[in-house]
Structures are given as structure tokens and as C-alpha cells.
Write a protein that binds this DNA or RNA. Structure first.
Length: 213
DNA sequence: TACATGATGCCCT
DNA sequence: GGGCATCATGTAG
């Protein structure tokens, strides 16, 4: 995986656990997308856990349907859905085959291919100062709909794809980055089961959606 | 076949 | 801070 230095790619077993644990441990890892034009990567700074039965806010709560079938399959698969007529959201399935549960990717800090991601979002980075303008960089991938647009993720292309396969163009990498402290808060945009603190962010990171914590 | 709704983001005040 | 675009999906009828 050139230009990212020495990294370890996560395998399916990493995702074969409770979504709450996976969500917290994904913080600080890299979401990596291979494209014909280069490698795009962002550091995961915000996630949310969605459980199975008993989690009224989860897509899996009402049981298996054609849309959410990936959630009931093996761990480490991309679950991509379309929302509000405009946006895609990316999740990764957790737990063994047959047990639903997933983690929603909510925000990335651009790490590699920043210009290409900005372009995919319709954002112009000034030639000199663009890569230092935090408020502008934050618009690239801080939000679940934003990061999928930045990485070119769609349901048609990516739903059901393994994030843990050597052939996949969408992977999670560990580059050794150490997260100092994480914070758990209620999930965003959900009305049911909103009281549980299942949203995880890297404390103090400016690239989380909303204000930094 | 119809309809309500949503794990959002953007633009306007 | 609030309104709204825009459509796939699930459920009711």
C-alpha cells in the first residue's frame, strides 16, 4: 500500500466482536480506498455502534430484509445504504454470520489523496494554503454522507464488499497511530434509543462532525 | 400501488 | 438555527 508507509491491514476477525468494541477500536485507524488515480485515506475519528435486536435505532431491529441482509452476514463487510434522497452511509458488519450488528463511519481526517477527495466533494483547495485550512479540510469528510462522497462510495459499487479481503479496494489499515483518549456520546440523528452513548470520537480531534470534544 | 420516513448536508437568515 | 431537497425502502391497504 504505497505512500502510506508501513501499515497493517485489518482482517475479518477484528470485526467478529461486539460493535461497541469494534467502534472504539476503529478510532485512529485508516479507511483506505484504492482508485485508478491513487490511494485515498482518512483517519477514522468518529464512529457509531449499532446493535441487533433490542437496538430500536438499528436497521437490523425489525429483522432481516433485502436492504439490510449484509448486517446478518459475516463480519467485515460493507453495508452501504442511501438516505434522505441524497446521501450514502458506510457501515461495517460485526459479529459472526447470522448475528446482526455494525459500526457506522461518521467522520475522517484526510490523510492521503486530500486534493482528490476535496474535488469529489466539489471543494476548491487554494494552491498555497489549502492543505493548512482546517475549516476547509473539515468539510471534506466530517459527516457520514460527506466521507462516502469523498471516497466515491455507493451502494451499487460497494454494498456487501469485504473490507478485509486482499483483493478489496476498500480496507482498514493500522499505521501505528495511538489514540490518547476517546469520548462516548449519544448517537446523532436517531430518535429511538437515543439515550445510549454509542457514538465514539477521538477527544480533541477537530475533524469530528459538530464541535470537537 | 400509495404513502410515510429517515444513522444528512446545504443554503439561507 | 431552521427549512428543504430528494428517493429507496418498508409497510399498510
Amino acid at each position: 500500500m504505497n505512500s502510506l508507509g508501513r501499515v497493517t491491514l485489518l482482517e475479518a476477525e477484528f470485526f467478529n466482536r461486539d460493535p461497541r468494541r469494534v467502534a472504539r477500536e476503529l478510532l485512529g485507524k485508516l479507511l483506505v480506498r484504492k482508485t485508478p488515480r491513487g490511494i485515498l485515506a482518512g483517519r477514522i475519528v468518529e464512529t457509531e455502534a449499532y446493535l441487533g435486536q433490542g437496538d430500536a435505532a438499528a436497521h437490523a431491529a425489525a429483522g432481516r430484509t433485502a436492504r439490510n441482509a449484509v448486517l446478518f452476514g459475516p463480519p467485515g463487510r460493507a453495508y452501504v445504504y442511501f438516505i434522505y434522497g441524497n446521501h450514502y452511509c458506510l457501515n461495517v458488519s460485526c459479529l459472526p454470520d447470522g448475528m446482526p450488528g455494525c459500526v457506522l463511519f461518521r467522520a475522517l481526517e484526510p490523510v492521503n489523496g486530500t486534493e482528490q477527495m476535496a474535488k469529489a466533494r466539489g471543494i476548491e483547495l487554494a494552491r498555497e494554503s489549502g492543505l493548512k485550512n482546517i475549516s476547509l479540510l473539515k468539510k471534506i469528510s466530517s459527516g457520514p454522507g460527506r466521507l462516502t462522497a469523498a471516497l466515491g462510495i455507493t451502494r451499487e459499487r460497494d454494498n456487501g464488499k469485504s473490507l478485509a479481503s486482499p483483493r478489496s479496494d476498500l480496507r482498514i489499515a493500522d499505521d501505528g497511530y495511538r489514540v490518547r483518549r476517546t469520548v462516548a456520546t449519544p448517537r446523532i440523528g436517531v430518535v429511538k434509543a437515543a439515550e445510549q452513548p454509542l457514538r465514539y470520537v477521538i477527544a480533541g480531534n477537530p475533524f469530528v462532525s459538530g464541535r470537537s470534544l
